[in-house]
């Protein structure tokens, strides 16, 4: 069903599976790799009948001319991509970089927090801060040891790294907020924090840093269609103002974001999503192809 026969589109040059649900795609697009900056995102369509899904750029390699996306298979589209996409296949659409790049200031000491899938998009920010000369403390959170990925990449750009797992199977036992507390206790001079992950985790991070008045930037990924400011589906409440995450963000001041509103709005298509997922499950059962067709590299 993927349109891997057509010559147009954007070629997948590498794939890696981190776990049952998390996978990485490296896609060739030299111009995009050249333009991409930390904090920006792309919109992807896997097939002609597909939907447009926004994904934060997890990494880019200007020499190779590729960008890296880390995807969690949750909805029908991302599960289908997980099942079908192989190295050599082509995405029918890939547009970006979208959004305002993250502001990498001159903070001397920063905290880069990634939770779950959010670990991937916080990486370019950690690297950018490192390149800007900052002392970087990384805090990564996963549910358990099996889901851990990219800790090696982070060690290369962080001066300190705190790994947290919910069950304690690796690193510190507890949520990233535990890690944040430890980091702040050790480094009271942390000037800035970047937190990316599920909305509930970013909300927790914002609350953890609020008493210390540490500027905390979060990256929002609400429902959107075009990603160019045209549909307004991605509107988010920042203090008293309504902003469009696609063109006014995706980075916002975590202390001002109305996370409850964001979480409600993310539920918007739940009924349809369920329907699509059920239909997809049915189709999968009908197919006798092994599910692991993609294969890890």
């Amino acid at each position: 069903m993927t349109t891997n026969t057509q010559a147009s589109g954007y070629e997948i040059v590498a794939r890696r599976d981190f776990s049952d649900v998390t996978y990485l795609l490296e896609v060739r697009h030299p111009m995009l790799a050249k333009a991409a900056k930390a904090g920006q995102f792309v919109i992807v369509m896997a097939s002609e009948h597909g939907e447009r899904i926004p994904l934060t750029i997890a990494d880019y390699d200007r020499d190779k001319g590729t960008i890296t996306l880390v995807i969690q298979a949750v909805g029908k589209t991302t599960r289908e991509m997980q099942r079908d996409l192989k190295v050599g296949d082509r995405l029918v659409a890939l547009v970006g970089p979208m959004g305002i790049p993250s502001h990498i200031g001159h903070a001397k000491k920063v905290l880069c927090v990634g939770g779950g899938l959010g670990v991937a998009p916080v990486f370019p920010q950690a690297r950018a801060f490192k390149e800007a000369g900052a002392y970087v403390v990384g805090v990564l959170g996963f549910r358990n040891k099996d889901l851990v990925f990219w800790d090696d990449k982070f060690r290369a750009v962080c001066d300190e790294l705190i790994l947290c797992t919910d069950d304690g199977s690796a690193g510190l036992k507890g949520l990233v907020t535990e890690g944040i507390k430890q980091a702040i206790a050790k480094h009271p001079d942390i000037e800035e924090c970047v937190a990316i992950g599920p909305p509930i985790m970013m909300k927790g991070c914002a609350e953890a840093t609020r008493p210390y008045k540490i500027r905390t930037m979060v990256s929002l990924n609400p429902v959107m269609v075009d990603g160019t400011g045209m549909c307004g589906g991605c509107r988010v409440k920042i203090g008293e103002v309504v902003k469009f995450a696609c063109v006014d963000g995706p980075d916002f001041d975590g202390h001002l974001v109305d996370f409850d509103d964001l979480m409600v709005r993310l539920q918007r298509f739940k009924p349809t999503e369920r329907e699509a997922n059920e239909k997809f499950n049915e189709n999968c059962r009908m197919r006798s192809i092994p599910a692991a067709a993609g294969g890890a590299t």
Partner: peptide, 15 residues
């Protein structure tokens, strides 16, 4: 543009 009216033949939802 996204053919949500033909959901679920097209993936874009509309409700």
């Amino acid at each position: 543009l996204m053919h949500a009216r033909d959901f679920p033949n097209y993936d874009t939802p509309l409700q």
